[in-house]
Simulated scan of single mutants.
Amino acid sequence: MKPGNPLDSQAWAPEGSETLGRFGDWTITKNDAVITLHSDTRNLAARCSDATMTYMAFIRISDLGSITGRPEVKPPPYFNFTAWADSNEPANFTFLVSYASDAYATGIVVLNPKFADQNTKFWAVLKSARSRFSYRTSNGTISISAVDLSPAIARFQRECFKIFKANAHHRLREPVPLDWLRR
C-alpha cells in the first residue's frame, strides 16, 4: 500500500496528535513515538521515531524534471535540487523518491557524527538558516521563512532524543532481522 502524502496536515498531525510547540511558521507534533517538525508552507518537514533512530527530511518536489535515475529502474528514484540558508553558498542535494507520483522526496539523516553524507550536510544547512531557507530546481526557487526555525529544530531534537533514549535499550537488545539485511 502506498503511504499517504507526508506533508499532508492529516499525515503530520493525525487525530490524537499532540502539538508540542509552535514556532512562527513551524509546528512540532507528537503521535505515539513519532515526532514531526513541519513548515506551514508544506514545502519542508523533518520526522523522527524510535523505529528509525534517524531524522527523515521531506522536501516538496517542485519540478518533476528534477527526478532522475537509472533507466532500468522505474520509477526514477532521485530528486535533485540545490539548497542554501540565507545568503550562504548553495549546495547540491539528492533525495529519494519512492513512487513516480510522489509530491515529496526523502533524505535520511544518520545521527552518527562519523557519517558526513549529503543528507547530514542538508541537515547542517537547514540548522544554519536564520532568516530564509531556499531550494531550487530548473523550475524555479522556493523560499521558506527560517526566522523561528532554529528554536524549532532545537526543540525537535530534544523531543527526538527523549524517544531515542527511552527506546534505545529495547532496540539494542534486538538482533538485526535478516530480511532487513537483504534489502
Rank of each mutant, 00 (worst) to 15 (best):
T137H: 05
T106E: 13
D102H: 05
T82V: 14
V110N: 06
Y135A: 03
A91T: 11
I144N: 13
A129L: 01
F81I: 01
S134R: 13
V125E: 11
S87I: 10
P77V: 05
R136C: 04
T94P: 08
V97H: 01
L96Q: 11
V110H: 06
A105P: 06
I144L: 11
R136A: 14
W123S: 09
K127C: 10
P90T: 04
T106A: 12
K121C: 00
I142Y: 02
N119A: 07
T106I: 08
A129D: 05
G107P: 06
Y78A: 09
S143Y: 09
F93R: 04
Y104M: 12
R136N: 07
T94C: 14
N88G: 15
Y99H: 14
A124M: 06
R136Q: 13
K114V: 12
V97N: 00
D102K: 02
W84F: 11
T82H: 09
I142C: 05
P77D: 09
K121T: 10
A91Q: 15
T120F: 06
S131W: 01
N112H: 12
S143K: 10
A85H: 03
S128I: 07
A154T: 13
A152R: 03
W123C: 00
Y99D: 15
N139M: 03
A91L: 15
Y99A: 12
R132Y: 13
S143P: 10
A124L: 08
S87K: 15
Y78S: 09
L111N: 09
S143T: 15
S98K: 06
V109T: 07
A146H: 13
P113L: 05
F79Y: 15
A91R: 15
I153V: 13
F81D: 05
A129N: 02
N80A: 11
A154Q: 11
S128V: 09
V110M: 03
A124C: 00
P113M: 06
L149H: 12
A152W: 01
A129F: 00
F81R: 00
Y135N: 02
K121A: 11
A100Y: 01
K114T: 13
A105V: 04
P151D: 06
T141I: 12
V110R: 03
F95G: 08
K114Q: 13
A91V: 13
L96T: 10
T137P: 04
D148E: 15
A154F: 01
N119Q: 07
F133R: 00
G107R: 02
A154H: 06
S87N: 15
A105K: 03
V147N: 13
L96Y: 09
S98M: 06
A116G: 07
D86T: 07
V125N: 10
Y104P: 12
P77L: 04
Y99T: 10
S138N: 14
T141D: 07
G140I: 07
S87V: 11
V109D: 04
S143I: 12
F122M: 07
A146P: 14
A146D: 14
T94I: 13
A100I: 00
F115P: 01
V125Y: 13
E89K: 12
K121P: 00
R130P: 00
E89P: 00
T137E: 06
P151I: 05
D86E: 04
D102V: 03
I108N: 08
P90L: 03
I142W: 00
S128Y: 03
Q118R: 12
E89L: 05
F122A: 02
A91D: 14
T82P: 04
E89H: 05
F81H: 03
E89G: 01
T82L: 08
S128H: 04
S101T: 11
N80I: 12
P90V: 04
A129H: 02
L111D: 03
